[in-house]
């Protein structure tokens, strides 16, 4: 009984007002309340009245030619439509990625084909003012070594016979090249080489 009383005392909600104005049924509590509430009935009438007023407003009908004109305008505008931002953004990403890959390939290629400067056999070795020799390195710096030291001298002599194409290919030794190098050594150099080899291999000195 108390619940029924409370339901009838509570005014209609916005949703219930809309349902009544638009001709839909509302629940029993709402119906009972409306029957007993003059304020809600007045509100319903006011809403119906304003709805009628709103309904008299019409959109003036444009010229019959307007519709085809509008279609033509839309067609022309669509034909001029630039690619979407999404498409442009994708294109930019592809171009950027392509550029990055191309740069990487270029750097790798440059690194692989880069060679040390070829030292011609005819090119004179620049002698230092003291007892050492200076050879230009590939960075442009001079590498100085003591030509009086027999180990350096031997290495320099052997290195002069290297072909840089062989170096690039992983330094394969040509058949007979070791024999040829040894044959070009002097007696002193040969005995020194033998000493060094024995020392390296741990063999007793003769």
């Amino acid at each position: 009984m108390k619940q029924v009383f409370l339901a009838t005392m509570r005014h209609l909600t916005a949703e219930q007002f809309v349902d009544i104005v638009e001709g839909r049924e509302i629940d029993d509590d709402g119906t009972r309340h409306l029957a007993g509430c003059a304020a809600c009935r007045q509100e319903v009438e006011a809403l119906r009245s304003v709805l009628l007023q709103a309904n008299i407003v019409e959109v003036p009908e444009p010229s019959p030619l307007f519709w085809n004109h509008l279609s033509a305008r839309v067609r022309a505008a669509v034909d001029e439509t630039p690619p979407s931002r999404w498409w442009r953004w994708s294109l930019a990403r592809v171009v950027f990625a392509g550029g990055a890959v191309a740069s990487l390939v270029l750097v790798l290629t440059m690194t692989m084909i880069r060679r040390p400067p070829v030292i011609s056999e005819d090119a004179p070795i620049e002698r230092s003012s003291a007892s050492g020799s200076t050879v230009p390195s590939d960075q442009g710096e001079a590498v100085t070594f003591d030509e009086d030291e027999p180990d350096w001298a031997m290495v320099a002599t052997v290195a002069e016979s290297f072909d840089w194409d062989d170096v690039e290919a992983g330094m394969p030794v040509r058949p007979g090249s070791a024999e040829r190098a040894i044959a070009q050594l002097s007696d002193e150099e040969r005995s020194e080489l033998a000493r060094l080899l024995k020392e390296a291999l741990g063999l007793p000195k003769s």
Binding site: A14, E15, V18, D19, L47, V50, Q53, A54
Partner: peptide
């Protein structure tokens, strides 16, 4: 839907006051 109905109710109420 509830929000739409509430909006519609308030629209009609405000329209009534404006007129």
């Amino acid at each position: 839907v509830g929000a739409v109905k509430a909006n519609f109710f308030h629209a009609l109420g405000n329209l009534k006051r404006l007129l």
